[in-house]
Simulated scan of single mutants.
Amino acid sequence: MTNAENRLESAVRAARAGSEIAAEGFREEITVETKSNKTDVVTEFDRRSQRRVIEEIRDEFPDDVIVGEEEDALREVPEEGDVWIIDPIDGTNNFVRGIPLWATSVAAVRDGETVAAANVCPALGDTYTADANGASLNGEEMTVSHRTDPETFTVCPTLWWDFDRREEYAATVEGIVKRFGDMRRFGCAQIVLGMVADGALEGVVSNIVPNPWDTVAGVFMIRQADGTVTDIHGEPWTTRSRGLVASNGEAHDEVLAAARDAEPYFDK
C-alpha cells in the first residue's frame, strides 16, 4: 500500500469516526451557541466530533499538522509538510435545524497539494472520496456533468455572506438566475462541491475568501473528476485565493461571470 492510499483510508476512517459522534446529536435536543455572529453557530457535537477525528489521525500520524475549524486547531494551511484539514460538521446550520445536508470532512495535504480526501454524510448515507486515482461516491467513480449549454446548467451560490455583504450575495444570485437554467442553495459547501464532482450540479460560485476546512476536500474531488476550480480572477484555486468558482469545465467563463457580478459591491 502506498503512502497516499494509506492516507485515503485514514481520511475515510477518521471522517466516519467523527461523523458517528456528530450523528448522535442530529435531530436531538442540543444547545446551540453562536461564535462571530448570529448565523455562525456551533454545538458541543462539533467539538466532540473534531476531537474524535483528531484522535484517529494522531494514532497513525502523530507528527502531522492539523488544520481545523473548532477549538485550538491551526487555521491556515502550511505550504510545506504533511497536513490534515478537518471540518467536524460542515453545514452546522443545517445540522441544528434537522436538515440532513451536512458532512464530516477530512483532507490530507502534502507540501500544499491535496493527496486524499473524504466527506462523510451520515444523514444521507453518502461518502465522497478522492485520491490520485480519481473521485468516487459510495465506491462508484464520479465524473462531472457533460452538459455544455449554460441554459441547462444548475448552479449554486456557496459559503456565506454576512449581513453587511448582502448586496454581494444578491448580485451573485441574480448573476446565476439570469445566466443559467436553475439555481440551488444547500448550506453545506463540501456537499455542493461533491455534487459538482458527481455531475448533479454544473457550477458553484462565491466571491469571498473561503476557509480551507470548507473547501479543500471538495475542490480536490472536482479536479479528480475532471472539473475546473478557479478563484474570482480565473486563476487556479488555492487555499489563499479569494473567491471559489467551480464548474464542469464546459462553460467555466460563464460561471465565473456570475461570480464576478458581485464585484461592484465588494469592499476592496
Rank of each mutant, 00 (worst) to 15 (best):
T129Y: 00
D111M: 14
L159N: 09
F180W: 01
D131T: 05
A116R: 00
H146L: 04
R97V: 04
I85G: 00
R97A: 15
V120S: 10
L124W: 05
G125K: 02
Y169M: 07
G112E: 04
P88Y: 15
R166Q: 13
N119R: 11
I99K: 10
A130C: 05
T158R: 08
P150A: 15
R97E: 14
T104C: 15
E113H: 09
N93K: 14
D131A: 04
D182N: 04
R184M: 08
T129F: 01
G181V: 01
P88V: 08
G139E: 05
A132T: 10
N138H: 07
R110M: 09
R97W: 02
L101A: 07
I99D: 08
T104F: 06
V177I: 10
F95Y: 15
L101K: 10
A107T: 01
F95D: 01
E174L: 15
D82F: 12
R147P: 02
G91K: 01
L101W: 13
T158Y: 05
A171D: 09
G125C: 01
L137K: 15
W161H: 15
I176G: 01
G175L: 07
F180Y: 01
R166L: 10
V109N: 01
C156Q: 11
T158N: 11
A170W: 12
I85T: 00
K178Y: 10
R110P: 03
V177N: 13
E151C: 02
G181Y: 07
E151P: 03
C156F: 03
T92I: 10
T143W: 09
K178M: 13
P122Q: 12
D162Y: 09
T152G: 03
D162S: 09
N93V: 04
D182F: 00
T92A: 12
N93D: 10
D162T: 05
D87T: 08
I99E: 12
F153G: 00
I85N: 00
E168M: 09
C156K: 04
L124Q: 14
E141I: 15
G112D: 06
A117R: 00
R185T: 06
E113K: 13
F163Q: 08
V177Y: 10
R184S: 12
N119H: 13
V120T: 11
P122W: 11
G187W: 14
F95R: 06
T148H: 05
D149E: 08
R165G: 07
P157M: 08
R184W: 02
E167L: 13
A171E: 09
H146P: 02
G134F: 14
M183A: 13
T154H: 06
V173E: 12
R185F: 10
G139W: 12
E151M: 07
T143I: 15
D164I: 02
V144L: 11
N138T: 07
G91C: 12
A170T: 02
R179D: 01
M183F: 05
M183T: 08
R110Q: 13
A123N: 08
H146K: 06
D164G: 03
V77D: 00
L137T: 05
V120M: 01
M142E: 05
F163T: 03
A107V: 05
D126F: 14
A132K: 14
F180E: 03
D164C: 05
